[in-house]
Design a protein around this nucleic acid. Structure first.
Lengths: 209, 209
DNA sequence: TCCCGACGTGTCAAGAGTGGAATGTGGGAG
DNA sequence: CTCCCACATTCCACTCTTGACACGTCGGGA
């Protein structure tokens, strides 16, 4: 339900056409809230119907420039200040981590190290943006820099985690090898370790909204 | 497209009914890949049609227990090892950061500190899970612990960032106040500093995949 | 005995999001 | 002057996700 607010937010900075908005999405929100043409134009229509935006000017090729209305600005403010952000969402990469057990430890390790490299690449890219931008004291600079710093910290933490996790697999493998040896030695006792129905959930107990 | 793989992953550990899977989703994948009944049952149907899973047993109340097939396991492995994870996704909270400029600095600061508290809460919760769980050396424990540690690190970094950002707003506000004073003092010179059309996009230039 | 709560399956409508394609106009490079 | 590209909008068909609703059955406690 937040595409609406992304559009309102961009309109709050300056009026724009659907085409303009697409460009803005691609350069500024691409990593945070990607959107497609169909979505943006559709949303502009809905926004206009709802009275949150209006056509403020007509241009050359059927261009319609949209501007945010007072009502729209109020909605944006309300969303920002009073609507609680939704919790953590789907994470493709993390989902894989849960099932890494179906791969060999070596493959799992490779996967994690690839993740680390990928995140490092992203981190470096953000660093470049940070360095190449002149940061003013105006609103956009202050908050844009905040968002960038967020990306910087998250990618750094992710890379560290991935490297740590790769090592962790190595040591688990080592430990298990040790166990195997130990088990072989007491093989006479109760068969295999028993198929205790592996039921450990392993991850956070659904915060239940 | 990954719900399919989440289901396959769970089935790879042990056969289960749709009902069982729902429980598994709620306790183990809730924070990583939430799913609803309709989705799970629907996916089981598709999986069966596609030959990636099959009904392995019938139980009391029309219960159908599904098991992963060799083909399904191959698909799961392929996904894990060879399909590149998709990049960063939509982030509600971060989107707001971009538009924090429409609020007063005070409101923005409050928003960030609330975020910090919320993340801290989540972090503490994960810590509890970590402490209350006995970690073995089996697959599930090793990889579950990896995922948990990921959550731990991300929430910690997020909280730190939010607190840092709140302070940052304070100092920007202070700097701006300073500028205002300075401007007032050289008001005799070339009028106001001029309304240079604030156009800095502010954030990362779409990595383009 | 009866009835409730857990088990268990299924369908539907509506809203997001994806990806592509059709259509047309205006201005500037050559 | 012409042609091409950037500008600009709109529609479509599809999948994914959400949230409800509808249905039926087994087991055990009052």
């Amino acid at each position: 339900m937040s595409l609406r607010h992304a559009v309102l937010g961009l309109l709050s900075e300056s009026p724009a056409s659907g085409y303009d908005l697409m460009k803005l999405f691609n350069v500024s929100l691409a990593n945070v809230w990607p959107a497609t043409q169909s979505q943006v134009y559709g949303e502009l229509g809905k926004l206009t119907s709802a009275g949150l935006a209006e056509v403020s000017a007509h241009g050359p090729r059927g261009r319609k420039e949209y501007a945010i209305t007072d009502e729209g600005l109020a909605e944006l403010r309300h969303w920002l200040a009073e609507v609680p952000p939704s919790g953590p969402h789907r994470d493709d990469s993390l989902l894989r981590v849960f099932f890494l057990g179906v791969l060999t430890p070596l493959e799992a390790r490779t996967f994690l190290l690839e993740r680390a490299q990928e995140t490092a690449r992203l981190h470096a890219q953000l660093r470049r943006v940070d360095e190449e931008t002149e940061w003013d004291d105006d609103m956009l600079s202050v908050y844009g820099r905040l968002a960038l710093e967020y990306g910087l910290r998250m990618t750094a933490a992710q890379e560290e985690w991935a490297r740590w996790a790769a090592e962790e697999i190595d040591s688990a493998k080592a430990r298990e090898a040790g166990n195997r040896v130990r088990n072989r030695h007491r093989k006479t006792a109760a068969g295999t370790t028993g198929d205790a129905p592996v039921s450990d959930p392993g991850e956070a107990p659904a915060p239940k909204e």
